[in-house]
């Protein structure tokens, strides 16, 4: 798995990153939400941002997607120092953000959601109208291309499963020519199978040449697809690794807070834990026997 993605990393190391944060900080009043965080997102790479609740992941997203400005440090798009005026400006620069819970409008049909905010029109003056046929057809075709086969693009998007909704949002971003895709915990509320489906599309977006920023608190999901790993802890950088520089176990340990996890394990230790522990073997053995 590691070797499979290495060429990707090598291929793009020469280019300037599409999005680069350097020592970026953000304060809400006297609360330090983010301090000295650096991150690079390159085309054809997946940069994972890992952190626990309150680590500053949402703040980081808000800065990249143009919802908030940063207070210190430098934020570069295509190597050029930038301050985004809003989400629209971010979109215009090719940065699309897919939020975990606010990605879609549940009561609206799939096709209306797909084109929301960037509806294609035809006609002029008072007759300027949405090209509904085109929108229906394109939404259906684009989703099918991503492997989501809807029987009816007129159904409210709220009737789709969580994974499908994430995929619609990703397909939308890809269709509208996003160069940088920011994914906010796309697998957080999903089951194992649904998560797998979403991760497949994340990889598909990478293969399509997008720079992906994948925010998650699940090191297993991150390690499946990630090329770089940025660890956040209480608003500050807790580590920055490339794929060949870290193992899943180490990533999991750092993510969980390393020593803190050891403490926790100690605290939760059962009195009888001294006896032979219940191991993974027992679980694995069950279906076979």
């Amino acid at each position: 798995m590691t070797t499979a993605t290495e060429p990707t990393a090598e291929r793009t190391t020469g280019d300037a990153p599409l999005v680069e944060l350097e020592q970026v900080s953000k304060y809400y009043g006297n609360v330090r939400a983010l301090e000295g965080v650096s991150l690079q997102a390159r085309a054809g790479e997946i940069t994972c941002v890992l952190g626990d609740n309150g680590a500053g992941k949402s703040t980081l997203i808000k800065i990249i997607s143009g919802l908030h400005g940063h207070d210190a440090g430098s934020f570069r798009i295509d190597g050029e120092e930038t301050r985004l005026a809003g989400p629209r400006a971010a979109l215009d620069r090719g940065i699309a953000t897919v939020y975990q819970d606010l990605a879609v409008v549940p009561l609206m049909p799939v096709w209306r959601n797909f084109f929301l905010g960037s509806e294609p029109t035809k006609g002029r003056g008072p007759l300027r109208r949405m090209d509904v046929e085109f929108m229906r057809r394109t939404a259906h075709a684009e989703l099918r291309r991503m492997g989501i086969d809807l029987r009816d693009v007129d159904q409210p998007i709220g009737t789709l499963s969580g994974g499908e909704r994430q995929c619609v949002a990703i397909a939308r971003a890809v269709y509208f020519g996003a160069r940088v895709l920011v994914l906010d915990e796309p697998t957080a509320a999903l089951g194992v199978k649904q998560s797998g489906v979403v991760l497949k599309y994340v990889a598909a977006a990478r293969d399509a040449g997008l720079a992906v920023v994948f925010i998650t608190h699940n090191p297993h999901h991150a390690y499946l697809v990630g090329d770089r790993f940025v660890l956040l802890k209480r608003g500050a950088m807790a580590g920055h690794h490339t794929r060949d520089g870290i193992t899943l176990d180490e990533l999991t340990r750092q993510m969980a807070g390393g020593d803190e996890l050891d403490d926790l394990r100690h605290e939760l230790e059962r009195p009888e834990a001294a006896a032979p522990p219940v191991t993974a073997d027992a679980d694995e053995g069950r279906p076979r026997s």
């Binding site: 989400p87 979109l91 606010l102 990605a103 879609v104 409008v105 549940p106 905010g117």
Partner: peptide
């Protein structure tokens, strides 16, 4: 009306 935050996020 359906989801103001989502609308704002996609540039409405």
């Amino acid at each position: 009306g359906g989801n103001e935050a989502a609308a704002r996020a996609v540039g409405v």
